[in-house]
Amino acid sequence: MIQDFSETTKLTTAEILRLRGSKNVVSSTRPYAFIVEQERAANGEIEDVATVFLTNSECPYRCLMCDLWKNTLDHSVDSGAIAGQIRYALERLPGTKHLKLYNSGNFFDARAIPKADYREIAELCSAYDTVVVENHPALCGQSCVALNELLDGRLEIAMGLETIHPEVLPLLNKQMTLERFAEACDFLVANSIAVRAFVLLRPPYLGEEEGIEWAVKSIEFAADCGVGCVAVIPTRSGNGAVEFLAEQGVFTPPRLSSLESVLEIVLKEPKTYRVFADLWDAERFSSCDRCVGARMERINNMNLTQTIQNPVVCDCAELVSD
C-alpha cells in the first residue's frame, strides 16, 4: 500500500466516469428493489425495517468507490414519481415500525426529489416511527427540517463519512471535509433529526491493519459528532474505478475477519450509539468456505445484540495481512 501520499495522483471526476461500465435498466415508475431486514433499534429492541431502493436521477457527487449509479437514471424523475414508487413498494411489503428510503443519491437534492413532493411522501410514511433517508452533508439544511416537521415519526438522515484518514478522504472525490460533516451533524441534531453514518472498511490506499484502525477511528469521530448509528461497509470492487486502483496496486478488498475485528474493538465497552457491519454480499470477502457461514452468523448476531459473540474457530488463513 502507498505510504507517501504526496506521490499519489487523485482520479478526477472525468476519469472516474470514464472507467465506468454500463447502467442497469430501471424504470422511473418502480423502485428497483425493496426488502425487509432485522435491525437493533435505538430503543434496544430487534425490529423489522423495510427498505425501499428508489429509482432516481444520478447523484451529482462522483465518489471514487460508489457503485450506486448503476441503478439510476440519466434524468430527473417527474414530480410525484417518488411517491408513486414508495406507494408501490409499501403495498407489497409487510408492516414495520421503521422505513428506509434510499434513492442512490441525496434525498434533499431538489433535482432528485422536489420539495413539493414532501407532503405526499410524509403521508405515505405516517405509520412509521422512523424514516431514514440518505443525503450528502453539503445538502443538509432547511429542507431536512421541513420534511421532519411533516412526518408523524422521526426523521433520520444517513450520511457518508467514509473515513477520517487525512490523506485518503480527499482522494475519494467525496467533495466533503470533516468540518463540513461535523457541521451537518450539529445542524441535524439541533433540529431533533437523528443521524447515522457510513464508514468504509479498507478504502483504497490503505492496508488491512490500517483499514481496521481507521475504520475504528472514523466510527469514534462519528459518535463524537452526535451520530447515533454507524454502518461499516467493506469497500467493494465493481464500479470500474476501484478495479483500476486494484490494477495499480493501491486497493485490495478487506477480509471478512477484519469486519469482525472492527465490531469487536468497538463493542468492547457499552456504547450510546449502535454500530453495524454491512453484510450485503459479504461472503465475497472470505477466503474460507468452511467458516464463512459461521463468521457471517457471528457478525449478524453482533449487529443485533451489540455485544461480542464467541469467536469462530477455524484453521484457515482468515488472518489480518496486507
Rank of each mutant, 00 (worst) to 15 (best):
5 F>E: 15
7 E>F: 11
9 T>N: 11
28 S>W: 06
37 E>V: 06
41 A>Q: 03
51 T>A: 13
52 V>L: 05
54 L>P: 02
58 E>H: 07
59 C>T: 07
59 C>E: 09
62 R>F: 14
64 L>F: 06
66 C>E: 03
74 D>G: 14
79 S>H: 11
81 A>F: 04
81 A>L: 04
81 A>E: 05
83 A>D: 10
85 Q>T: 05
89 A>M: 07
95 G>E: 13
95 G>A: 14
98 H>Y: 09
107 F>D: 03
108 F>Y: 12
110 A>H: 13
113 I>K: 00
113 I>F: 01
116 A>V: 12
117 D>R: 06
118 Y>L: 07
119 R>A: 15
119 R>S: 15
121 I>M: 10
122 A>C: 15
123 E>M: 12
124 L>Y: 10
125 C>M: 10
127 A>Q: 14
128 Y>R: 04
133 V>T: 08
135 N>D: 15
138 A>V: 10
139 L>E: 08
144 C>Q: 02
146 A>K: 09
150 L>T: 13
155 L>C: 02
158 A>I: 04
160 G>I: 01
165 H>E: 08
166 P>G: 15
167 E>K: 10
168 V>E: 04
169 L>N: 09
170 P>D: 08
177 T>W: 09
182 A>H: 05
182 A>P: 00
183 E>A: 12
183 E>Q: 14
188 L>E: 05
189 V>M: 09
193 I>G: 00
193 I>F: 01
196 R>G: 03
205 Y>G: 02
207 G>L: 09
207 G>N: 12
209 E>V: 08
212 I>P: 00
216 V>C: 11
217 K>V: 02
217 K>Y: 06
218 S>R: 01
221 F>N: 00
221 F>T: 00
224 D>Q: 13
225 C>I: 13
228 G>N: 05
229 C>A: 14
231 A>T: 12
232 V>H: 00
232 V>E: 01
237 S>R: 15
237 S>A: 13
242 V>K: 04
244 F>K: 14
245 L>V: 12
265 I>A: 10
267 L>N: 01
268 K>Y: 07
270 P>W: 03
272 T>Y: 09
273 Y>T: 07
273 Y>G: 03
274 R>M: 11
276 F>N: 02
279 L>Q: 09
286 S>R: 08
290 R>Q: 11
291 C>W: 04
291 C>E: 05
294 A>W: 00
296 M>H: 02
296 M>D: 00
296 M>N: 00
298 R>Q: 14
299 I>H: 00
303 N>Y: 05
305 T>V: 08
306 Q>L: 07
307 T>A: 10
308 I>N: 03
308 I>F: 04
309 Q>F: 02
311 P>N: 12
312 V>Y: 00
312 V>N: 02
315 D>A: 13
315 D>Q: 12
319 L>E: 15
320 V>Q: 13
